[in-house]
């Protein structure tokens, strides 16, 4: 046990994901050694993160303003909506440069085993948006795991009743991968989702 502030910092750092007691100690002593200005910059960044960042009122992406960058951008196609689980997924899709529509962040996925049902996600707000905005297509881009599939299936069924095209992102082989090492589920999906050249 160290004294006072050093021990406090070690304990706080140790609560971060993926940081064990040894790493927390290493980080704390690193911070003790750096310039005061560097340490203050880090402290300020953390405080500002909590003060300035909030969730977009329309799509629930992280944002500095009432609405996020994507929702405010007039060049985005308002008729296509991409539904994702987390704000991180928005970032991942933005990096591809393939999608020009807007987003809706659910804030998780339906996971019966963790007790997360449709009511805990931003699904009601999604349905409200479909009523208010002129949306022609909804792309379901939830993760291709059990929770994401359940969410997509639930939304697919829910949105079928509304006058909107619902699509699901394709799932298949990673670029640069090997067919022989692909698992049967992925390879099977790649086949069922094949397209004409």
């Amino acid at each position: 046990m160290y004294e006072g502030p050093v021990q406090d910092l070690i304990e706080e750092l140790g609560r971060l994901p993926g940081v064990g007691p040894k790493s927390a100690q290493r980080l704390a002593f690193h911070l003790l050694a750096v310039d005061r200005a560097d340490a203050e910059r880090l402290a300020r960044a953390i405080v500002q993160l909590k003060e300035r960042v909030r969730f977009c009122a329309r799509c629930f992406n992280v944002s500095e303003h009432e609405e996020c960058r994507v929702c405010r951008d007039p060049r985005r196609d308002p008729s296509v909506l991409c539904v994702v689980e987390e704000p991180r997924d928005v970032q991942a899709i933005e990096k591809t440069g393939e999608f020009r529509g807007r987003y809706h962040v659910l804030g998780g996925a339906i996971s019966p085993i963790d007790g997360v049902g449709p009511d805990q996600l931003h699904i009601r707000q999604l349905v409200a948006r479909l009523g208010e905005e002129d949306i022609g297509e909804v792309v379901l881009a939830t993760n291709p795991n059990i929770e994401g599939e359940a969410t997509a299936s639930y939304l697919g069924r829910l949105l079928k009743a509304m006058d909107v095209r619902v699509s699901r992102i394709a799932s298949g082989l990673p670029v640069g991968g090997d067919l022989e090492y692909a698992d049967e589920v992925t390879l099977g999906r790649a086949f069922s989702g094949r397209r004409e050249l």
């Binding site: 339906i110 996971s111 019966p112 059990i146 599939e149 359940a150 299936s153 639930y154 069924r157």
Partner: peptide, 14 residues
């Protein structure tokens, strides 16, 4: 795979 791809079946399977 059918259990995974349908929401009601997936809830029962879970």
């Amino acid at each position: 795979a059918t259990v995974r791809s349908d929401w009601a079946l997936s809830a029962c399977g879970s």
